[in-house]
């Protein structure tokens, strides 16, 4: 069995090598991807269109904002699906896992986490809010925020993390994140533009069309951050406890 599965792997590997024989030179400015009108527009006009210095954020949240909205929805679906599969409403007595041992949380670990978690959370806010000018944005900020809760769950136990962020609140926050993202899109539609045409928000914001895009991108990133934070933690909480939401790792 193992050897038969090697055949398609080698075949696909061969295909990939064959394809790479015709690649443009690495970093070639004449290659289609570098010289196409789309990438030249991104490079030359991002600042003009949106006032955002970080081109990647502008492409992600504005030019291709619809993709990013759907990516957020994908994250939401992942959380939903894991909950739907694992969540057990029958309230049967749980089976104890073989390796489970009950020890007190370690003093050194917990105290370190106590120090580290606030720093991580503040850093995640920074990453989220500073995504316009430096690497970062909603996804990374949200993941960092979710990681801080996972850290609490790892060093004490799941209950302690869940008292701070109950699973139902997770799903509410996740849904609100999408609602915020799509809501900004619908608001710009109601103001006369297309879906996600942030420039139309100038009618309600006291700024220019370009700055309206800039600020709407922040709103959108916050929505992404909400969803990602909540789902990352919900995923961990459900997967580590088979959906029972109790006990340590």
């Amino acid at each position: 069995m193992k050897n038969t599965s090697l055949i398609p792997v080698v075949l696909v590997g061969f295909l990939l090598f064959y394809a790479s024989t015709d690649f443009p030179e690495w970093g070639d400015p004449q290659s289609p991807a570098s010289s196409s009108p789309v990438s030249s527009h991104f490079i030359a006009k991002t600042g003009v269109d949106t006032e955002v210095p970080n081109m990647v954020t502008a492409v992600l949240a504005d030019y291709r904002g619809f993709d990013t909205m759907l990516e957020t929805v994908v994250v939401f679906i992942a959380g939903m699906a894991v909950l739907a599969i694992l969540r057990n409403f029958s309230r049967k007595k749980p089976v104890k896992r073989g390796h489970e041992v009950s020890v007190e949380p370690d003093l050194i670990v917990t105290n370190t986490v106590r120090l580290v978690v606030p720093v991580i959370q503040i850093f995640s806010f920074y990453v989220l809010a500073h995504g316009h000018v430096s690497p970062g944005g909603g996804f990374q900020g949200g993941v960092l925020m979710g990681a801080s809760f996972i850290l609490i769950a790892l060093s004490w136990d799941l209950e302690r993390a869940l008292t701070r962020f109950p699973i139902n609140r997770c799903m509410v926050v996740a849904a609100l994140g999408i609602l915020l993202y799509a809501g900004i899109g619908v608001l710009s539609m109601a103001l006369g533009g297309e879906f996600l045409d942030y420039a139309e928000l100038e009618k309600v914001l006291p700024v220019s069309r370009e700055m309206a895009r800039y600020h709407a991108m922040l709103g959108v990133e916050i929505g992404v951050g909400f969803t990602v934070t909540a789902i990352m933690f919900a995923l961990y909480a459900n997967l580590s406890s088979r959906g029972r939401l109790e006990g340590g790792l």
Partner: peptide
């Protein structure tokens, strides 16, 4: 989507 119309922006921007 996003108002990246074809007449003022190259195709494929939005």
């Amino acid at each position: 989507f996003g108002g990246w119309t074809l007449d003022s922006f190259p195709r494929g921007v939005g």
